[in-house]
Design a protein around this nucleic acid. Structure first.
Lengths: 106, 106
DNA sequence: AAGTTATGAGACCAATAGGTCACATGTCAA
DNA sequence: TTGACATGTGACCTATTGGTCTCATAACTT
């Protein structure tokens, strides 16, 4: 399977995106720790983490019998750069900054 | 279906990503024009464009019997901002700029 | 060494998605 | 107004995917 296909397929599932959210909030967690946050069996979570790892969205490091999971932002940035050039980026960020400002302070 | 789910599901298919690539290169094309670039029937392409439009990745404008398609970068930027904070963004862009420079000039 | 803890591999089933086709509507041009 | 052009709808089949379970390996603790 193509490299980018693995990334987009991995992002297509809400449980996997939630796992990325958890790792974005705090890195270096184990499977058991992440499992406790999902309404799913350990096997399901392990399967999702494997998909994320094979896509390069999550990188891991073993520490004894534990496996620590870290978020890798590179593939996300590459998605961005594929369809947003430097010129458009200025407009879009300005637009979204304005939107966020309006939503926070009505 | 949740808003972000529509976006990620839409991006999960390679044909739809190719359609976004085509629109990124040149906006405002019709279904018939896009169809000629894909090895697929018109119905397949129309279905994909509908998915992209419902996700907000493509916006359309009617002109007589034709329907013109445009790329909308906002959802893409929102994916970026979900998992890359301002601090990390500096590191990742620097890294990818370096990578691109090395690949272009060996 | 023995028990407990952390993770891994593969079979299996139900639900979903990609692609094609038959059929249909609306628009332009002569 | 008649024919060609551009797009839309819903049924249908097949392949893929999410989730659970059984079985199994490896590492820490006492």
């Amino acid at each position: 399977m193509a490299d980018d296909d693995l990334v987009f397929k991995a992002l297509a599932d809400p449980s996997r995106r939630f796992l990325l959210d958890l790792l974005f909030a705090r890195d270096g967690r184990t499977l058991t720790e992440l499992e406790s946050e999902l309404a799913m069996t350990r096997f399901g979570v392990a399967k999702h983490l494997k998909v994320l790892e094979e896509a390069g969205l999550v990188v891991t490091r073993r520490s004894g019998r534990e496996k620590l999971h870290f978020l890798n932002p590179v593939p996300i940035r590459q998605i961005h750069d594929r369809w947003i050039d430097k010129y458009t980026e200025r407009h879009v960020t300005a637009l979204l900054d304005l939107k966020n400002a309006l939503e926070e302070e009505p």
